[in-house]
Simulated assay, not measured.
Amino acid sequence: MLNIGCHLSVSKGFENMGKEALSIDANTFQFFTRNPRGGKAKQLDQNDIDKFLKLAKENNFAQLLAHAPYTLNACAADESKREFAVNTFIDDLKRLELTPNNLYNFHPGSHVKQGVDVGIKYITDMLNQALTKEQTTTVLLETMAGKGTEVGRSFEELKAIIDGVEIDEKLGVCLDTCHVFDAGYDIVNNLDGVLEKFDNIIGLDRLKAIHLNDSLNSCGSHKDRHAKIGEGQIGLDAIVRIINHDALKNLPFLLETPNELDGYAKEIELLKSKYIW
């Protein structure tokens, strides 16, 4: 089965997100834990969550992917922003235990000209404060395109973060197809080579989810501009190879393409027709 979904709005509630996913033939979805451009979190409704958990079990949902807000920058130069990141991270992990055994994805952050090594140190500091042995959520570092002073533009940078974390068994990676392509990893012409490099540096056992996006820009552009499936520089053929690759095909795939719900439905239908069981 192709485990595929898209980004949905948590403001509608978990049960409604589950129903929306089913309406477009999806069996997973991604949602922001709180306002993506701010920090305010929606109050959770246990009754709503219980209804969703029942719905998800009945329909064999794959793992969900919660996404931290864009405002969370663990390696900001401003100490108050780093404090916000730690507090938000800890609170999100606590809230996610109401929907246990799922995934929490975050952008490693931007070091704001402090240097990559400083950025990595701040990120590992946050993770060491936030992660617990008791949590059921797996935290995912997202691969980044490398625009500006982003940390996580290379597999080596992600590995350096993982190496600095004490409870590293709670860590994984979310590979964003647009981001890695824009970062210079040629998943169009050398997918096997890219995955081999990932395995050698990080380990494919750490790869837990895929953000499935086409890219408006060319390989190595460091731009991070998502495109609809088959309408960008990655192209449909390469994306079909990704969803059918033996090392990837059982992972959850989350669409972040510039679409409304009907557009996601069409992309899911297209990709399911190309998926080899």
Score class of each variant (00 low, 15 high):
L2W: 03
G148D: 09
K170V: 08
N59I: 09
P108R: 03
L261W: 02
P108I: 06
V118W: 07
F155H: 05
L255Y: 01
I49S: 05
N35K: 14
H107F: 02
A76V: 05
A265V: 09
I243Y: 02
E166T: 12
D182V: 11
V116E: 11
T28C: 15
H211T: 08
T138Q: 06
A62L: 06
R241K: 15
D186T: 10
A76E: 06
K94G: 11
F89G: 02
G148P: 07
A62N: 07
L22M: 08
K54E: 15
Q135N: 12
E157S: 13
K94D: 14
A76R: 03
A247F: 12
N217A: 13
G172C: 13
C178A: 15
A130P: 11
P69C: 12
P69I: 11
Q30E: 12
T138V: 14
R82M: 06
L248V: 12
R95Y: 08
D50N: 15
Y70L: 13
L236H: 10
Y104Q: 04
Y185D: 04
N200M: 14
E134M: 03
A160L: 14
L140F: 01
I4D: 01
A247R: 15
E97M: 04
T71D: 08
D205Y: 06
T132D: 03
S23G: 07
V10E: 02
F84A: 10
L93V: 07
R225I: 09
G38Y: 05
L8C: 05
S23D: 05
G172F: 10
I202V: 13
L195D: 04
T132A: 08
S80G: 04
D91N: 12
T88N: 11
F89N: 02
K12P: 09
L212M: 08
L64P: 01
I161A: 05
M126E: 07
L255N: 02
N16P: 12
D48G: 07
K249E: 10
A76C: 13
G203N: 07
N60C: 13
A56L: 05
K42A: 06
N101C: 04
V194P: 02
F198R: 02
L254E: 03
E142P: 06
Y185Q: 02
D50H: 15
L127H: 04
F29N: 03
F14N: 01
L53G: 13
G152D: 08
